[in-house]
Simulated assay, not measured.
Amino acid sequence: MFDLDISAAHPLTAYGWDDGFAESFTPFAGQGFVPGRIVRVDRGRVDVVVADGDAVRTALADTALVATGDPMRVPCTGDWAVIDVENGRVGDHLDGVVRALLPRRTAMVRSTSSKRSEGQILAANVDHAVIAVSLAEALDLGRIERFVSLGWESGAQPVVVLTKADLVPDPAALGHLVADAESAAPGVQVLAVSAASGEGIEVLAAVVAGGTSVLLGRSGAGKSTLANALVGADVQDVQAIRDRDGKGRHTTTTRDLLALPGGGVLIDTPGLRGVGMWDAEEGLARTFSDVEALAERCRFADCAHGAEPGCAVMEAVDSGALSPRRLESYRKLQRENLRIVAKTDARARAVLRRDWKQKQALGRHMMERKRGGGGWD
């Protein structure tokens, strides 16, 4: 009944199936199982698309066999899974069991609000991280830097989308907002779009066509409206935002994987009130590549970019080449990331202690200078 062909002509190709995933599935192909992609997760069961002949069918699959206490290993929207569909039907859906998860290529991870060091996977096997930022409120460059860092760290290509561009009718003002966003995300494409007018939607559709993209952003950023515009149908509920603060309710309550008419799939996520760093050293380095490049020119390899002599970073701030806001954002996210890593990494804890001692020593030195006790040697 079910198509076990794992060639490029597989019916799930439109959902991201390719030779690499086919190779990962090979050990399971002779056991009566089929590959499927998880399109929704809900309380121990998942919706998963599988091939049924030349067609694509949806199965409801139990995840008890792959249940784990590790939040980094639970099934997630975007995962490719090994599915046993020999359990009959439930209504119009096939009934199945998730036997295993195929190795993830990328994973969008944030830290949880727990006091323990735990990560939460927002989406798996993603090619583009589409970061939605509403122009209905003041542009928060720090939030853009935070999301872009997580996007880079996941292995996906970040794309910043400034939504509700119709609310900024002045082209010059809109251009300045785009330029500001670009300054916070070096090497990242920034698009101004409007689902209401259609501005920029075709360009964004071309960017995400053929791969897997995840929509990220705070509640009220217009993600569900943007998802509907890209899909070309009202597949996601949309609610009006509050006039007093531009915020909306969490219209999307689950992570849903949606097929795009131009090819590829889109994962819409609930609004995120907070996105904590999760071992994002590489992502931060790419997001703040300008700061990192300056740091390489500092006189001291362990320069804290404070009052040390020969600090190229502070020289750039003093000359106006680097904004104080961007440097402070860099410091803040670096500190946050190091704290998360230090909870489980003894070496990182040692680095944290060393940096703290250096700051204490620097503080004492600055106090001595104020009291006339001398300067740098």
Rank of each mutant, 00 (worst) to 15 (best):
D52V: 05
V159P: 00
D47T: 01
L230H: 03
A138L: 06
I267M: 03
V98E: 00
D355Q: 15
A316R: 01
R335K: 13
L65V: 10
A132G: 06
R40G: 03
M366R: 14
A59M: 10
I267L: 02
M108Y: 13
L4P: 14
A321G: 04
E199T: 02
G320F: 01
E137T: 11
G264L: 03
P309H: 11
G211L: 03
T58W: 15
R349T: 10
N337H: 08
R73G: 09
A14D: 12
G363C: 05
T68D: 09
A165I: 01
A348F: 01
R37W: 13
E118R: 10
A9L: 06
P158I: 10
S113D: 13
G217D: 05
D70Q: 07
V90E: 15
A124H: 09
T112K: 01
S114A: 15
G96W: 00
S323L: 11
V193M: 10
L177V: 08
L65H: 11
G200W: 05
L272C: 08
Q189A: 15
E199G: 06
T287G: 05
A138G: 10
Q360C: 11
I201C: 11
V39M: 08
R286L: 15
A348H: 01
V49Y: 12
N87G: 11
L4M: 10
G232D: 11
R273W: 13
